[in-house]
Nucleic acid binder design. Structure first.
Lengths: 123, 123
DNA sequence: TATAGTAGGTACCTAGAGGAAAGTAATGGC
DNA sequence: GCCATTACTTTCCTCTAGGTACCTACTATA
């Protein structure tokens, strides 16, 4: 988790970024906050329908620690907590846009898979 | 693995791309092949120093199936296999460049972490 | 004869991410 | 008195990516 020395596989300079930004749940959370703005815990939970509260809390804490998300706690009667993307997080916007654009190629990936699978099953 | 129906968390349109391209080892493999061109198995193994042959094979097979990497087998005396990035894989180039650029922000992430940790330990 | 090199395959194990379900504190509404 | 709501926390369990270690076939070279 805490890598003090850059590990050798990081001869690849983008691996650390992937580590921080792109995992199963951090990506949907960041994308949602970037797309729809400030939001409460339950609202996030409802948008990212399949996430469990435990995991949502874990990922949000991690993203807050990494400075990508800002958490605001309002000590009210039913507690109210708001999450929003930080300035640093917002700087990922163009990246998300590129990814969104590249997702147009998912059809090609699917086609490649089918071709590969039929090549293997027929022989 | 084989998601026939788009799962609900994929209300986030970039999650599937992340699934295919960004994991611990697929990223360094794709980046290396994109950066240094066609390469043999052992050469990849040596560049990505900490990967084990088992995992390298697994990831290469997956990337080949997804159409991102092309494998060429030469039935020679000591067998020779070459891997290169496909055209589809090459289309990830700009993305990698953006990521590489964003990695300049890793210092900010580290600073945010230290700030967060000191905030928690002092109270 | 033995060793090294290539491109893997196989069996077994561990760690960490994530899922399920229930609990918690505080209080307003019925 | 009881339930609902919010934002979690806790416990327990599963599943899979990845690691370790060893094996394979084939041959050139020392």
């Amino acid at each position: 988790m805490t890598r003090t020395t850059p590990t050798p596989e990081l001869a690849c300079p983008i691996a650390p970024v992937v580590d921080i930004v792109f995992s199963r749940w951090t990506t949907p959370i960041l994308w949602t906050l970037n797309e729809f703005g400030r939001m409460r815990f339950v609202e996030l939970e409802r948008r990212i329908t399949t996430i469990t509260p435990k995991v949502l809390t874990q990922r949000l804490r991690q993203l807050e620690r990494d400075g990508l998300v800002v958490r605001t706690y309002h000590a009210e009667v039913p507690p109210r907590v708001e999450y929003e993307i930080s300035e640093l997080g917002r700087s990922l916007g163009p990246l998300f846009a590129s990814l969104s654009e590249w997702s147009g190629n998912l059809g090609k990936v699917e086609a490649a898979r089918e071709a590969y699978d039929s090549r293997c099953s027929t022989r």
